[in-house]
C-alpha cells in the first residue's frame, strides 16, 4: 500500500494542510518557527553586528538604551542585544534538537519493547520509567549538573536523562492497544519477525503522536534549558544564550532593563512558536499526548 497511492497521499497531505491552516494559532506557530529557524541559519548575514555574538567589547557604546542602530540596546560591554538574541536562538534550537534526538529514540524503543512483549521486559522497563517520572524534573537535572561541569553539553545530557521516560510511557500506551489490531495479528500469522512488526507495522502508527509531542516538547526543552542557563548551569559566557542574558541583565535592574527584557521576549517567542505549532498538529492528527 505504499507505491500505488502517490496521488491519494498528495491529496491526503492537501487535506491535512487545509485542516491545519484553518486554525490561526497553528499558522502563527508555524510562521514563528520558520522565521526563527531561518533567522538562526542566516544569523551571520542578517544581524547588524555579527561580531558581537561572542567575546567582544566596545565600552564607548556600552549600556545604550534601545535606539538606532542598536534597536534592542547594548549590554554593559557594548554588545548589540538584537544580534545576541538572534544568535541565542541557535543555542535554544541546538539544545532542543540534541535533547530530543537523544531522548526520543531511546524512549520510543523502550516503549515499543515494553508494550509488545509482555512479562519481564514490560515490568522492568515500566517500573524504571515510573521511578524516573516520579523524580522531580529539575531535581534530576540539578543532581547531574552538580557533579559534572556546568556547560551546554552537560545541560543537554541532564535534560535528555529526564526526558526519555515520557516517550516510553506514550509509546507503551499506544502499543498496548495497537498490538491487538487485525493488521498486527495478520503480520504475526504470516510469520513476520518481531522487528518487522514493531518497526514497520506498529511504529508508523505511533508517529503522529510522537511527532506532535516532539513539537510541544521543543517548547518545554527550550524553556528548561533557558532556566538552567539562567541559573548559570547551562551555556557559559561569552556564548550568547537567552537565559544567561536575562540573568546578566537582572543585575542592572531597572536602569538597564533592555538587557533582560529582550532576551526574555526572545524565549517567549520561540517557545510560543513551537507550542502553537504542536497544538495545531495535535488537532490535525487527533492524537492525545
Amino acid at each position: 500500500m505504499s507505491t500505488a497511492v502517490a496521488a491519494p497521499a498528495a491529496d491526503q497531505l492537501r487535506r491535512t494542510w487545509y485542516a491545519f491552516s484553518r486554525n490561526t494559532g497553528s499558522v502563527v506557530g508555524l510562521a514563528v518557527v520558520v522565521i526563527v529557524v531561518l533567522a538562526t541559519a542566516l544569523a551571520p548575514w542578517i544581524t547588524p553586528f555579527p561580531r558581537h555574538a561572542r567575546a567582544f567589547t566596545d565600552f564607548e557604546h556600552a549600556s545604550l538604551a534601545p535606539a538606532r542602530p542598536h534597536l534592542f540596546g547594548t549590554d554593559t560591554i557594548g554588545r548589540d542585544i538584537l544580534t545576541r538574541v538572534v544568535f541565542g536562538f541557535r543555542f535554544s534550537l541546538l539544545l532542543g534538537v540534541v535533547v530530543l534526538s537523544a531522548a526520543v529514540p531511546t524512549g520510543v524503543m523502550l516503549g515499543l519493547v515494553a508494550g509488545y512483549y509482555r512479562g519481564w521486559p514490560e515490568t522492568v522497563i515500566m517500573r524504571v520509567t515510573d521511578i524516573f517520572l516520579s523524580i522531580p524534573p529539575l531535581a534530576l537535572a540539578l543532581a547531574i549538573l552538580a557533579v559534572l561541569e556546568p556547560n551546554l553539553q552537560n545541560a543537554m545530557l541532564a535534560v535528555s536523562v529526564m526526558w526519555w521516560p515520557w516517550y516510553t510511557r506514550l509509546v507503551y500506551g499506544l502499543v498496548s492497544s495497537l498490538r491487538n489490531e487485525a493488521y498486527v495479528q495478520a503480520a504475526q500469522i504470516v510469520g513476520a519477525s518481531p522487528v518487522h512488526i514493531l518497526l514497520r507495522e506498529i511504529l508508523p502508527n505511533c508517529l503522529p503522536a510522537v511527532l506532535t509531542k516532539m513539537t510541544l516538547d521543543m517548547a518545554f526543552v527550550i524553556l528548561i534549558g533557558s532556566s538552567l542557563s539562567f541559573l548559570g548551569l547551562g551555556v557559559q559566557p561569552p556564548d550568547p544564550d537567552l537565559g544567561t542574558m536575562v540573568a546578566d541583565g537582572a543585575k542592572y535592574m531597572p536602569d538597564l532593563w533592555w538587557i533582560s527584557v529582550f532576551p526574555g521576549l526572545g524565549i517567549l517567542v520561540i517557545v510560543l512558536g513551537f507550542n502553537l505549532l504542536g497544538d495545531g498538529l495535535r488537532d490535525v492528527f487527533g492524537v492525545e499526548v
Partner: peptide
Amino acid sequence: LGGVVTPAFVWAIVLML
C-alpha cells in the same frame, strides 16, 4: 498561553519592572 510559554524568571523580571 502567556502563562505556559513564558518562563517564571521572565515573569519575575517583567512584573518587578
